[in-house]
Design a protein around this nucleic acid. Structure first.
Lengths: 330, 330
DNA sequence: AAAAGCGGGTTAATCGTTTAGCTCCATATG
DNA sequence: CATATGGAGCTAAACGATTAACCCGCTTTT
């Protein structure tokens, strides 16, 4: 390049990075770029600027629509800004989670977006010594002050449960996520709070702690059906457990909503696939991804306004035909 | 590092890259690594070796289990080998497809794994001027000699259709993918070939060309139900169209398999979710991902044996209860 | 005993950028 | 007219590794 134009590399660097260059030179460099098909070598640039123009995305699993839809939109925003997205799936393995986090840092990513599982603040602190931006999605890590983008899980669960209550349901089976996951705690809180607000007693037997996998949705639904006074409604609180619950209900030939009313989570496709169409809590996956992506871009540009910001995005309760109104029935 | 040990950087480089170093020095360097918490700067290394230790993965959509499961296993293999996976979702947009491909190359990836849509050989040739390894998954690009890893679509479709035929079905609705996609062509070939082998006539009205989206599965299923002599069985040939088909059948309250027999594709979760459980053609997603990943690793190591290799992986026909045996019925 | 071989080290160039600091020249200012 | 001012370009040093070329001294070979 320098040779072709007869200019020094410094001038060319100026041209590329928008410095002052004479029009005539500007033209000749532009021409050279075309002819030599010049592309900046981002690696060399990265060495100098200590920026790799990539961000790492660390997620628990890549085979769940919820996660991948978010990732897809993160990737979209980042790519528009010239940033690459290095993805790491830790397969819900706490060991891998830390390993892959280190791996990402080894690749000198400029920022990290994490959907954490078992990661703890201390550990994070140790692994991430340079202060690159970290954004959590869906869940946060206690004691680690950082931006978080998540759905408003508490209200999501509150209003779904409230919907059941106002339709006359009093015994509502609740298939919850793991006790140690923040999202799950929030969803449980919503369930509990609405019971309090409506002065309803809580029957612990109706609360099942699953592990967010199909299997547990399946097993706990069966358990719920088997207790002495089975619930008149079941609320499954994530994508996979919704699938499992439906499998169990189908297997037992339980009629929805005649015998049991049902509300699921996330699984918007599923909603219309089974008969009758299911009422579903829908998380704003696209919005979560885009918000996380653009927040990351802001942080990468050095804008620390509002740090650490906790962004809760509204969920939607999609009403279909899987809930029976028994409020009139005595 | 060099300062700490009193050795030259060259010696340290040898240590890192496995050259001959005196035991005593080896120890002291090892100690220095610990104390200084030294990590090789892959960017600097990349500048010299012209390797970024990252592989680009270009896919049409990140919100389909089929794709993401594959990506997840690709990522797994690559990560084990120290390679990062930069992902790009082109959202089934041919424009974006080329743009993101260039983007990936701009990030100096060492190799590229593509699930192509509209990309053509010529275009590819132009974009990829340096001869980095390219591996196609699921579909190939005509005229571009490169490794391909895919499911054996022809046989998959052949045996699913054959299964229907041997159960007495003669009019089999076939919801095919787009005419210009190789995978879809292969699946169609299987359908046609088995008809030939069994000396059955083909009714063009039973073949619907969808676009691999839910919507088209839904619409074409309805169309199939509406023709004068509707098919006794329907075979949907991808994940999304299987969902759509089931939605349509549900909406029309068509009983499976009493009124219509059904075989779906890929959607293994769905299989048990609906009543009755669906028979499904299952692609070996994990195997596709792992094969593509390790093939990429081999190519990156310079092993060109068998190039270009076209790897077809066996699919499985998962038999459940959605097909009625009418071979005895006259 | 001299030559050859080799293990283990060093030096210095290099990869392709960015950037601080300098020079040069033209224009504006007092 | 002498002096600031500042635009545009250049030089050269970095960034942190790899690597070719070379050197030293010990062992082995003849």
């Amino acid at each position: 390049m320098a040779k072709y134009t007869g200019l020094s590399v410094a001038t060319i660097s100026k041209y590329i990075n928008g410095g002052n260059v004479l029009d005539s030179n500007r033209d000749s460099i532009g021409e050279a770029v075309k002819i030599l098909d010049y592309k900046v070598n981002e690696i060399a640039r990265g060495l100098k600027t200590r920026k790799s123009k990539t961000v790492g995305v660390l997620i628990p699993k890549l085979d769940s629509i919820f996660t991948t839809t978010i990732v897809s939109h993160i990737e979209g925003v980042l790519q528009e800004n010239g940033y690459g997205t290095i993805i790491c799936d830790y397969r819900r393995d706490p060991g891998l989670e830390a390993v892959k986090l280190e791996f990402l840092l080894g690749k000198s990513v400029d920022g990290i977006i994490i959907m954490p599982l078992a990661l703890e603040a201390e550990q994070l602190q140790k692994i991430i010594k340079n202060d690159i931006p970290v954004i959590f999605i869906d869940r946060s890590v206690k004691g680690f002050g950082s931006d978080v983008v998540m759905a408003d899980n508490l209200n999501a669960s509150y209003s779904a449960t409230e919907y059941l209550i106002t339709r006359g349901h009093r015994r509502i089976g609740f298939i919850c996520g793991p006790r140690d996951i923040h999202t799950a705690q929030e969803r449980l809180k919503g369930y509990l709070r609405v019971h309090g607000d409506y002065r309803l007693k809580i029957d612990e037997a109706l609360i099942k702690y699953g592990d967010y996998e199909i299997e547990s949705g399946y097993n706990y639904t069966k358990e719920l059906l088997d207790i002495l006074k089975p619930p008149a409604a079941i609320f499954a609180t994530n994508y996979e457990m919704t699938i499992g619950a439906i499998m169990a209900l189908n297997e037992r030939s339980v009629k929805i909503p005649d015998e049991v009313s049902f509300i699921g989570f996330d699984n918007i496709h599923l909603a219309d696939l089974v008969k009758p169409p299911l009422s579903i809590v829908v998380q704003p996956m696209r919005q979560i991804g885009e918000t996380a992506g653009s927040l990351m871009m802001r942080r990468l540009k050095g804008d620390r306004t509002g740090f650490p910001s906790i962004i809760r995005l509204k969920t939607e309760l999609l009403i279909k035909d899987s809930v029976r109104d028994i409020s009139g029935v005595v």
